[in-house]
């Protein structure tokens, strides 16, 4: 048995070479007719206005933050799931294996509930709710 990671590295190389190879082929095949007009970005046929790098909806950011928290939590769940069954089979009590994870998930759920209630995952807020929030 070889080291599996060498094989994965090999696949990564192949995975890189295939698209690069296609690019090279295309480079050989395709024509190049530079012209100013067709380089403008597409805005349904209109002349592009303004800059693209504008401020966008804050909700994207809230979602990203939530993700960071919950994604990291999966990192900590992974090892637990792996040992869970063998721990049980080796006679460790159910409470001892399950309870810590219940506490962990419980804390996360409290966090999720809080984020939910505070509108972190709510895409559109009604103007009335906004006003109420500003008022306090």
């Amino acid at each position: 048995m070889g080291n599996p990671w060498i094989a994965i590295g090999a696949l990564a190389l192949v995975g890189l070479l295939i698209p690069v190879g296609m690019m090279v082929i295309s480079k050989l095949l395709r024509p190049s007719v530079p012209e100013q007009g067709k380089r403008s970005t597409y805005e349904s046929g209109e002349v592009p206005t303004g800059d693209t790098r504008i401020r966008f909806n804050i909700q994207y950011y809230m979602v990203a933050l939530l993700f960071v928290i919950f994604d990291i939590e999966t990192v900590l769940i992974f090892p637990w799931t792996v040992i869970y069954r063998s721990a049980l089979e080796n006679g460790v009590g159910l409470t001892r294996v399950l309870a810590p994870m219940l506490v962990f998930v419980g804390i996360l759920v409290v966090g999720l509930g809080w984020a939910w209630r505070n509108g972190a995952v709510k895409w559109v807020r009604s103007p009335r709710a906004e006003k109420r929030k500003d008022a306090r």
């Binding site: 804390i107 409290v110 966090g111 509930g113 809080w114 939910w116 209630r117 505070n118 509108g119 709710a129 109420r132 929030k133 306090r136």
Partner: peptide, 15 residues
């Protein structure tokens, strides 16, 4: 701390 989050979740706009 968790209880505080829960209380806030019940009514986030509570004053």
């Amino acid at each position: 701390a968790l209880a505080l989050f829960l209380i806030d979740s019940i009514d986030p706009n509570d004053e």
